[in-house]
Amino acid sequence: MKILFLFFLLIILSPLPAQAEAPACEDGSGCIPPNSWQVGLALGLGGRTNPLVDGDAIPYILLPDIAWYGEAAYFDNGELGYQFIPTDTFSIELFVAPNAEKANFSFWHTSNILIPAASLAADAPPDSPQEPSTTISVDDIASRNWAVDGGIRGQWYAGNQQLQLAIARDISGVYSGFHAALTYRYYTQWKKWQIAMSPHVSWKSAALTDYYYGIREQDTATGELTYTGRAGLQYGVSINGSYPLTSKWTLLTRAGFTRLHAGMTDSPIVNKDTIYSVFTGVAYRF
């Protein structure tokens, strides 16, 4: 953790080279002409581990990529936003996006897909006459709701480097908390591979952590399992690689991990301290 903080400290304290020019923005390499769509579909194999007790891993089989950019407004893979004065080296945007925390609880949860009625029943506190359990699983607790966040993000570009700082809060009244993230991204090319390496650190407020990972009375009849989530910092790294096969087809691969913060991993509903994700496949751009 200390090493990662030192890494970020070095990045922040070392000024981005003012003379460095951002790489030319080319269609298909993370850029898009204004007033146009980018729609694609990737087919492959991969997944994301789930840190919850009895939580199902999220499979990555089909990855859509849907983006629309106007002159200033945009929609990018679920995020709706408005960008102010974008330049070659800086942009700032206001955005609204779903909070992804809920995905751990139900994204591919079989009870939500196959037996909707059962998932409704899960909203009620368990009233089993059995002896109180000393463990708790995601199947036992009341459902958590999807939340929608509103936030602001600044992005700085210099040469093949990018620094991104975002802060967002719940605007849907679900968890009533905040989160923030600092992401550094380094772009490089090896032969025809375009590679982006992204170490990141994020902070989640106590309200956010407690809503999703706290254990309350409606979750368990066992008092000793109740838990109040705390704020914390977590960090991780992701690596994305793409290899253009033709103008339409691209080979995609990505891998990453996120080390969860103690305010979350101390929860009895969490039994892993790291989330891993990996995907390899081919993508088609329509």
Partner: peptide, 17 residues
């Protein structure tokens, strides 16, 4: 001649999840 230069996407492509 592009009257409006391309825009950088705010997220990495294929980063829905």
């Amino acid at each position: 001649i592009e009257s409006h230069p391309p825009r950088r996407r705010v997220r990495l492509p294929w980063s829905l999840f």
